[in-house]
Design a binder for these strands. Structure first.
Length: 396
DNA sequence: TCTGGGGTCCTAGGACCC
DNA sequence: TCTGGGGTCCTAGGACCC
């Protein structure tokens, strides 16, 4: 049977949600209608555009560019800090609202999801009418607009929801692919990023149609095993199912850009300690253990590199994470000027494989971590290790 | 006043085993 | 006169997405 899939995508999510937050807290303005962006903090060297209003977009402001560059395009630009806690509330409200209609939704990110309409069509009726109703309901109940794409698979639904914005519904059924998708530039295709576009252009592929009609053997020379799926995407072929099960994380990582370049390894240790506690807290919340610990560095030339170590015994213990991270750092650090440092826990597993010889010590430490986690949750992170008290930590 | 942070998946090369 | 090769695991890095 032919599937009917919808992709629901919040318009300018962070900016819309901050607009609502401000309105809720007494602001007279709706920043959605002014030259506004959500951006990081230039003082801590995270000054990039995370989301922009439609008027700002019209002046050429793009996501990911520096605030400095955005301001050059729009001198009256206003910037607002992100409020992830509120974003996550709004996100949950939207997914809950959509879930009323079917459990078959896949949460793809904080502001988008897929919905498998196939099974509920007989109950809910025409999909376009349903989409209109859903879109209006989200706006009436929650106050922000979404785009909805309707198609026969996830890829095309996703492409359709991106066509024109805001507050639009588009279809991209199998029989519309040539007319609606093929004329687009190849970089518009989901999965084709900014590194791949120049490579494709070089072999005379400029539109999605060019890619769809390209020769498999020719493409294989440049993209190897990737070429098969690239051609499939360009033809709108995607058989992946809507997966409604909550995603189990494959890895947990945190990284911080430092407010100045650091060359003192002892200073880097402090950040490692901070990061160990952060990822430790998160992994224990998931009830998982990590087999692999990765340390990530970025130097002042923006070169990123990482090293990892596999553990004998998986861990979720702060002290163990920290100690291993220090060992890895010592191995890779060679007096570069460090701009960013991160820790990632990978190869997650459910159970700890117990090693009797050191078991007692670990259990004891683990209990301490758990007590601290509870207190942290209760008293908003007032408990910090002594060495961290003087370490500048950044807001989310 | 230059450039975030959270992920996923893939690839290539080396080590190691049989 | 020659020195396999498949399978698997591990690691580092890259591309992509929001």
């Amino acid at each position: 049977m032919e599937r009917i899939i919808m992709h629901i995508d919040v318009n300018n999510a962070f900016l819309s949600w901050t607009a609502l937050y401000l309105l809720k807290n007494g602001s007279k303005y709706d920043i959605r209608n002014s030259y506004a962006v959500i951006g990081g903090d230039e003082q801590t060297r995270s000054g990039i555009v995370l989301a922009k209003s439609t008027p700002a977009k019209r002046l050429g402001v793009v996501t990911g560019e520096t605030l400095y560059s955005a301001r050059k395009k729009c001198r009256v630009l206003k910037t607002y800090e992100p409020n992830f806690k509120f974003y996550s509330e709004m996100s949950n409200k939207m997914f809950n609202l959509i879930s009323k209609y079917t459990p078959d939704i896949e949460i793809a990110s904080i502001d988008e999801c897929y919905l498998d309409y196939t099974k509920i069509k007989s109950m809910q009726g025409d999909q376009l009418e349903f989409a209109k109703k859903l879109q209006k309901e989200i706006y009436d109940e929650l106050g922000f607009t979404v785009n909805i794409g309707i198609a026969n698979n996830k890829l095309c639904a996703k492409m359709a929801s991106d066509f024109t914005k805001p507050y639009k519904i588009h279809t991209l059924y199998d029989n519309e692919i040539q007319e609606k998708m093929w004329p687009l530039e190849v970089g518009e295709l989901f999965g084709i990023g900014k590194k791949t576009v120049p490579k494709l252009n070089k072999i005379n592929i400029f539109t999605i149609k060019d890619l769809a009609n390209s020769k498999r053997e020719e493409l294989y020379k440049y993209f190897k095993n990737q070429s098969e799926s690239m051609i499939n995407w360009a033809n709108g072929i995607d058989n992946s199912p809507v997966i409604s099960k909550p995603r189990i994380p494959k890895g947990i990582g945190n990284e911080i850009t430092l407010d100045h370049d650091v060359t003192d390894i002892k200073e880097l240790y402090k950040y490692l300690l901070f990061l160990s506690e952060k990822v430790g807290q998160r992994i224990r919340k998931q009830n998982k253990y990590a087999r692999v610990i990765v340390v990530i560095l970025k130097d002042n030339n923006f070169k990123k590199y990482s090293h990892q170590k596999k553990l004998q015994t998986p861990t979720n213990n702060n002290e163990e994470i920290y100690n291993m991270a220090k060992i890895i750092l010592r191995e890779i650090y060679d007096d570069e000027k460090i701009r960013l440092i991160g820790i990632r826990l990978d190869n997650l597993t459910d159970k700890k494989i117990k090693q009797v010889s050191i078991f007692d010590k670990i259990e004891e430490e683990k209990n301490i971590d758990e007590v601290v986690d509870k207190l942290n949750n209760k008293y908003k992170n007032i408990i910090k290790k002594a060495t961290l008290i003087n370490t500048k930590t950044r807001r989310e």
